[in-house]
Amino acid sequence: MNTIKNIITAAVLFMGTLQISGQVAIGKSPTVNPSISLEFGNENRGIILPWVTNTGAVTGAVNGTMVYDLSDHKVKTKYSGGWKDLSVDATGVTVDPNTAADGVVIQNSHDENTNAKVSVGTTQTSDAGILVLEDTDKAMVLPKVASPHLNIINPAPGMMVYDTTAKQLAVFNGTVWSFWKP
């Protein structure tokens, strides 16, 4: 009798969690703002975008997809059917992990699992992506760093943060930071 009661309780708890809207906080206490699906702490760190051989190799990308393009060392976002350059400067540096010459190596040569995907929120699409924020009424809050060009000691190519001093988006291409203000 206790076993049946435990199974029913577990099933009810599991079914109840399916109705909860997903919210994730990384490096901080849980987010309390109901308009946020993903939020980061306030350390001198940023998110590092996926490295791709080139944007032409990215299939199934939807508007808003963001990547670091190894072919020209730029952070790009999918926009109106094309790719918009967020780096501006083309002097970025990355290294093929198989040659391991001077530069920045953060990804290795393991085969990619093209089916890998983490969804935050209510699953609505089958969009390709590693991390897909699914909710249509929530947003991601980037890591917040005051003057990232001064305070992030070893930024990696493809890093992105919100500069709280200048109040703008900052992206790093491996050599220089580019800043975007609305």
Results as ranks from 00 to 15, higher is better:
Asn2Val: 10
Thr3Phe: 13
Thr3Ala: 08
Lys5Ile: 13
Lys5Gln: 07
Asn6His: 09
Asn6Glu: 06
Ala10Lys: 11
Val12Ala: 04
Leu13Ile: 11
Leu13Asn: 10
Met15Gly: 10
Gly16Phe: 15
Gln19Glu: 07
Gln19Leu: 12
Gln19Tyr: 11
Ile20Phe: 06
Ser21Cys: 09
Val24Gly: 02
Ser29Met: 13
Pro30Thr: 15
Thr31Leu: 07
Ser35Met: 12
Ser35Asp: 07
Ile36Asp: 03
Leu38Gly: 00
Glu39Gln: 15
Phe40Asn: 04
Gly41Glu: 02
Asn42Thr: 11
Glu43Gln: 11
Gly46Asp: 02
Gly46Leu: 13
Ile47Val: 15
Ile47Trp: 00
Leu49Thr: 12
Thr53Lys: 09
Gly56Cys: 05
Gly60Gln: 05
Ala61Phe: 06
Val62His: 01
Asp69Val: 15
Leu70His: 03
His73Phe: 03
Lys74Ile: 14
Val75Leu: 00
Lys76Val: 08
Lys78Arg: 07
Tyr79Ile: 13
Tyr79Trp: 10
Tyr79Gln: 06
Gly81Cys: 09
Trp83Ala: 04
Lys84Met: 05
Leu86Gln: 01
Leu86Asn: 00
Val88Leu: 05
Thr91Gln: 01
Thr91Lys: 08
Thr94Ala: 02
Thr94Gly: 01
Asp96Leu: 08
Thr99Gly: 00
Ala101Asn: 08
Ala101Gln: 08
Asp102Met: 14
Gly103Trp: 11
Val105Thr: 09
Ile106Tyr: 01
Ser109Lys: 12
Asn113Pro: 13
Asn113Trp: 12
Asn113Phe: 11
Asn115Cys: 10
Val118Leu: 06
Ser119Ala: 09
Val120Leu: 02
Gln124Phe: 10
Ala128Glu: 02
Gly129Val: 13
Lys138Thr: 08
Val141Ser: 00
Pro143Lys: 08
Val145Lys: 06
Ala146Asn: 12
Ser147Gly: 08
Leu150Ser: 11
Leu150Cys: 07
Asn151Gln: 05
Ile152Ser: 01
Ile152Arg: 04
Ile152Pro: 09
Ile153Gly: 05
Pro155Trp: 07
Ala156Arg: 14
Pro157Thr: 11
Met159Ala: 09
Met159Gln: 09
Met160Ser: 00
Tyr162Asn: 03
Leu169Gly: 04
Ala170Gly: 14
Ala170Asn: 07
Asn173Gln: 05
Thr175Phe: 08
Val176Thr: 15
Trp177Asp: 01
Trp177Ser: 01
Trp180Ser: 03
Pro182Trp: 08
Pro182His: 06
